[in-house]
């Protein structure tokens, strides 16, 4: 076993992990942070998406020891507890979430986009979310939600 030190949502953690432990397993099984989901475990569906030092990654194919000393943000950490992020508000108000299983990954992928590009076009939103699958919505309301959040964050 090896010791992994990392920061998750602003809080420092020290956990014991094996050589093949994934970041997703650290988050879910050791820290009990459950918004990143196990959808495919092969890096194809995006339900496990988190931000690693601000960059969108798939935690199911990210080796835990490769994030030594780094900072991870999950959906629980994108805003202070009790407050709500414009993306969360927009997904809620625009029905961008249906069953909810893909939603944490979708919102984090959207945040990575808006952090880099505050005024994306519809096509740029589609491109940014192309690694995150949803089987309920047909994506239209998800894209509407991201564009609505971008508008609100600019004003």
């Amino acid at each position: 076993m090896h010791t992994l030190e990392l920061t998750v949502n602003g809080q420092g953690h020290k956990v014991e992990v094996g050589l093949k432990t994934t970041l997703l397993e650290v988050l879910r099984d050791k820290l009990h942070i459950t918004s990143p989901k196990v959808g495919c475990n092969t890096g194809d569906c995006g339900t496990c998406s988190v931000l690693l030092d601000g960059v969108l990654v798939r935690s199911c194919i990210t080796n835990a020891l490769s994030v030594q000393g780094k900072s991870v943000t999950t959906l629980e950490g994108i805003i202070e507890p009790g407050d709500i992020h414009p993306l969360q508000k927009a997904f809620h108000e625009n029905y961008g979430s249906q069953c909810g299983f893909c939603t944490p990954g979708m919102i984090l992928a959207s945040k990575a986009l808006l952090d880099a590009n505050p005024s994306p076009t519809r096509d740029e939103v589609k491109e940014a979310l192309s690694g995150n699958l949803c089987r309920c919505t047909g994506y239209v309301k998800i894209i509407d939600s991201v564009l609505a959040a971008a508008d609100e964050m600019k004003s």
Partner: peptide, 16 residues
Amino acid sequence: RYDGMAHVTGETKFVD
């Protein structure tokens, strides 16, 4: 949606 806010904050607990 009655469950919408829980979905967007990650509070929704699925079986897993």
